[in-house]
Write a protein that binds this DNA or RNA. Structure first.
Lengths: 202, 202, 202, 202
DNA sequence: AATGAATGAGGGTTCATTCAT
DNA sequence: AATGAATGAACCCTCATTCAT
């Protein structure tokens, strides 16, 4: 029955993943999750202490990695040299290489953690990430163009960078396509940022 | 009584606007709307047939304009010449001028229509808009770089363009700041797009 | 419908009174309360915010008096002279007279407050009252017999004094009987206390 | 296995004892009992048919003694001579001597039987005991003061006598203290009773 | 116009018990 | 002997909506 048990538990997890992904934590319904998983409400609570416990299972691994990243991102090798490449047309290949190591780790758990966690204790993860990006953005602006006077755009750009990546992950299962699109998307942001602060001689 | 009636109706509308904006259609609670409006649940149904009817009022004008725009956008004067300006550093001023006529019309109703309508019959508006943008994006790509091979990025970029504008509208009440940020944001997208398809001689 | 409304509300209150009195707060079932009141669960929440709100209505008046009593009991005329009456056989009439002013105020609300409130914010009321009695008991012992060496009995006697009065109130609706029994019961406690500490020349 | 079995069974019994004692039969949770006992819900039902069966084990011995006592109490040597001791100040020592034989037998099982059995078939035990006491009380009254006209107080006094002893047992683990307090408490009741019916020449 | 009473479905959760392994 | 999966009823509570007054 060990097998049987795991079957049901996995069915609940799978079903919960789908439900949380589609509706977010708060709108997700345990009754619907268990029905889709082919079991009963009472049985759900044999596997999980409560709604949030199921959510946590879906998100735990990604959350641990996330926390590690938040705490150590300044020690991690930074791709600052990217910006110093004289010809931005060469960014793509370098960026693609860089991302090839990390994008395969971006799974459904990460999407749920960042985009479906309102109402849980994980709700703030996306904000932390956005703030990280924003700080880099501001640093970057100050380095390349002290006179740029619409610095508030950093709030939007940072959040949109994250949201865009989430959307790509949501809508593309093919790993290669996923990788290609994220590369293009970040490239788009780099070019946009450089252009915005007047760093190109068009 | 007519006066009183409008007062109540407007109070409900104002309160509903706030609730829908904050929580979205589905999570919004009529009980909370009427409490905040200083009236009662029963009275709500004297003014509106149901939850969606209130939503519709909040969104009607913007929706009509939206439909008109969707149906006539190909007849509307297009800012294509923008792209033909040789020096992108001059885009900002032209774009700003262009937007100064339209941004003041972007109000709360538009945000609600595009970003808070899940669960209503308006849920698809944002998608239609996104598709419009996407089609322009694709046209543009085909015009300037037939070989660009990550055309799928158009889905993301188009949706992100809309979402970013919505975020700016949500978070900035000051009209000038709003206008400036949207200008910068669209500029950012234009530059990013051009860069992505290799249209700059960096 | 004002009348109708009060009917239902009163029916719920009456039914809740019965349920709380019989089962205590935690075991009481809203479903049973509303069924007994002839209405539905949903409707219950039109009259009361939640289970505890109904409880509070049942208990509010008594609680206010209770708080007033706790804060002011030391200013209230104390029946200490009772103890100084040389012949305890005369206590009964004095005590009865004293109680005749207060016992009529002891209603069902008081029983619920003191004896059915576990699980609510009122749960500690009985304890406060018991402690008051206990302190008086200890004062009394120290005044009349410093050598009495089973002072711990005060815990039990104090709580039992309160519990006994609650039981009398629970089981007797007739005001005169109620008054007579409480008189006898307190008399019993006074005699017991005096006897215990050896204050009688039997 | 027999050894292991008893270990588990005893762990459940110990854990159940604690849970029933603290919460009473109805509020007690089998889930919490087995968790505290370090076993599982399924295994519980290998040892006990159901919740009440565990309760019965905890209470069985005391219940048998109780039934024996109820059926034979009139044949048991009665401490009536106590009352005939001319000087009540001498009661304490005689009573203490009497109780020293019986109080050590008052264990947790008795508390549970009398005070935690609502919802079980044992629920009426306390009442039977109370009625016994009450009958003695009435006999006593009729013997010493035929004119006493608040005979209904016997209901309360009898129940309170039992409840007080239960409280002492609940709150005191030290055998000597337990014995002393019960002695004082019953003395208190004897004095109170005698005083109430005017049998003292104060 | 205004009130809020009434309904029934659904929300998350706990429970004692049964049963297959 | 031991596990815990499975069930179904019950717990308190919120919801949008209807309706009588």
């Amino acid at each position: 029955m060990q097998i049987k048990k795991d079957e049901v538990k996995n069915a609940i997890i799978k079903s919960g993943e789908k439900e949380f992904l589609e509706k977010g934590y708060e709108k997700a319904s345990i009754r619907k999750i268990v029905k889709q998983a082919g079991t009963t409400i009472g049985n759900f609570y044999n596997y999980f202490n409560n709604k949030e416990a199921l959510f946590e299972v879906l998100v735990k691994d990604e959350y641990d990695k996330f926390i590690y990243f938040i705490h150590n991102h300044d020690k991690i090798e930074r791709p600052d040299y990217l910006w110093q490449i004289s010809n931005p047309s060469k960014w793509r290949v370098v960026l693609s290489e860089l991302l090839s190591k990390v994008v395969p780790n971006f799974g459904i758990g990460l999407i749920i953690l960042l985009d479906c966690s309102e109402g849980t204790k994980f709700a703030n993860c996306k904000n932390e990430l956005v703030n990280l990006i924003k700080n880099h953005f501001i640093e970057h602006i100050e380095k390349y163009n002290k006179e740029y006077n619409s610095i508030e755009i950093g709030d939007i750009i940072s959040e949109q960078l994250i949201d865009g990546i989430i959307k790509i992950l949501r809508n593309n299962n093919n790993p290669d396509l996923k990788h290609k699109l994220i590369t293009e998307y970040i490239l788009f942001y780099m070019i946009g940022t450089m252009g915005l602060i007047g760093n190109f001689n068009f």
